[in-house]
């Protein structure tokens, strides 16, 4: 409850109101686009190699293709990262780990599935030990190819950035 100077009395939860106001403000155009621009250029994928596509992922972070120019730099710990990059096949054992890693990451977080294996098992579609990423995680971008070329990785990053800047992926609510 707040008493104004002129004697009128406002009833309500101040904290909640403030949060609402903040959410309103942050969702308004200049701040919102600034925020989304910021998120789009600070993508930190976690070091989480799941299978052989990791070799091409490594190449895409290296000098020739250099995904760091998109603000995309692999980082060590899941607590400080916001992109989970599934580099190829997820085996059953690895799927568990993928879920742990995903749950540890702070919001907003994104998932990119790389390779034919990341889509539907690829060449290992009938193996007894693979899991499709889309069954266990919300995947935002898929990269086809076996293995996808580093250019395709770069394209996936650009796609993710575009999605973020179109405001589809990140919502800010009370």
């Amino acid at each position: 409850m707040v008493c104004a100077l002129d004697g009128s009395m406002w009833v309500g939860n101040l904290e909640k109101a403030a949060r609402k106001a903040a959410a309103w403000l942050v969702n308004k155009t200049p701040i919102r686009s600034l925020r989304e621009w910021g998120i789009a250029f600070s993508l930190w994928p976690v070091h989480f190699t799941t299978a052989c596509c990791g070799a091409e992922f490594g190449a895409s972070a290296a000098p020739k293709f250099d995904t760091e120019r998109f603000g995309f730099l692999p980082f060590i710990a899941s607590r400080q990262c916001n992109v989970l990059f599934i580099e190829g096949t997820l085996s059953k054992k690895m799927a568990e780990a993928a879920i742990w890693v995903y749950e540890q990451m702070p919001d907003p977080k994104f998932v990119i599935a790389m390779g034919a294996c990341g889509i539907d098992g690829g060449i290992f579609w009938n193996s007894y030990n693979v899991v499709r990423p889309k069954d266990i995680l919300p995947v935002h971008v898929y990269i086809p190819g076996c293995p996808p070329r580093p250019e395709a990785v770069a394209q996936a990053i650009i796609m993710l950035q575009r999605k973020i800047r179109e405001g589809e992926l990140v919502t800010y609510e009370v």
Partner: peptide, 21 residues
Amino acid sequence: LLPENYEGIPPLRKEFKVKTE
């Protein structure tokens, strides 16, 4: 190599069938 909680026939035996196309 298999997950800890794997049960059933060992996969390399012939009676273990995988899907084919």
